[in-house]
Amino acid sequence: MAGLAAGKRLKSTVCNTEIMVIAAPGGEVDLTCGGAPMSADGAGNGGNVAADFAEGTTLGKRYTNEEGNLEVLCVKPGDGSLALGGVALKLKDAKKLPKTD
C-alpha cells in the first residue's frame, strides 16, 4: 500500500471496519485489517477475515503500533483486527480530560 496521510479514510476489504488515519509514518505502509490490505473504497480480492486477525475493531477506539508513529481511529467497527507489517496494532488508552465545553 502507498503512503498514508493524516485524515485519510480506509476500508477493510474483508469486513465492515473503516478507519481514519490520525498519524502515519512516511513511505510505504503495510496496513491490514483481518489480514488483508485496506483500500479507499473497500474493493479487494474478497475473502474472509484471517483467523489470526479476527479480534475485531471497536467504534471510536484508537489503535497504534509499538513505535507509536502510526495511529488510526475506528470510524466503523468490524470483525477483523488491524495490523502493520503483520504485527497487530494495540488499543490506545484514552486520556481522561476535564470537560471544557
Binding site: 485524515g7 490520525i22 471510536g60 481511529l73 484514552a94 471544557t100
Partner: peptide
C-alpha cells in the same frame, strides 16, 4: 478548517465518553 476542528475533538474528547 476541518482538520482544526476534528483535531480538537479527537485530542480532547473520548468517543461515547
Amino acid at each position: 478548517r476541518h482538520k482544526h476542528l476534528v483535531s480538537y475533538i479527537l485530542g480532547s474528547v473520548e468517543f461515547m465518553g
